[in-house]
Design a protein around this nucleic acid. Sequence first.
DNA 1: GCCAACGTTGGC
DNA 2: GCCAACGTTGGC
Length: 152
Amino acid sequence: MAYWLMKSEPSSFSIDDMAKKGAAGEAEGWDGVRNYQARNFMKTMQVGDKAFFYHSACAEPAIVGVIEIVKEAYPDPTQFDPESKYYDPKATTDKPRWQHVDVAFVEKWEKPITLKQVKANEKLATMKLVQKGSRLSVMPVTQREWQEILSM
DNA sequence: GCCAACGTTGGC
DNA sequence: GCCAACGTTGGC
C-alpha cells in the first residue's frame, strides 16, 4: 500500500464536492491530468492506496482530507470528448494518451494542514510538494511523511 | 494580476 | 536532437 498527494483547485472540484460524492456512495474519476509524470504515478497506483486531497491555486493552499484509490488506472474519457476542456486531439481510443484512477472519499479534516505548516516543518522538507518549482498534481508521499502529517 | 519555474511544441 | 516560443501551474 502506497501513499500519494493529489491536487485539485477547489473552484473546480473541492473536498466538499468529494464528500458529497462519498455521501452518495459514489467514486470520482480523477480526470484532467495532462502531465506525463503525474500520469505515470497514477498508473502505479493500486486499489487501497491512500492519498491526501490538496487544495491548490486558492487563498489558503492546504491538505484538506484523505481519499482512497478504488479503481486502478484506465483511459480518461475526457481526452476523447471534443466538448471537454481536457480534450486531446492526439488521443484515440486505440491509443489513449491519458489514464486516470477512481477515488473515493475517506475524510475531510476540520483543521486542514496548510502549505505554510508543511513548509515550517523540517521533517517535511523532503516532500515534493515544497520543493522548488514542483508543480506536479499527483505525487508520491513516503510513509514517514504521511505519518508526520497525520500527527500534526 | 504578477511572475518564476517548468513542460510541450514545432521549426530547423 | 536542439532550442526558442509559447502555455500552464500555482504561490504570493
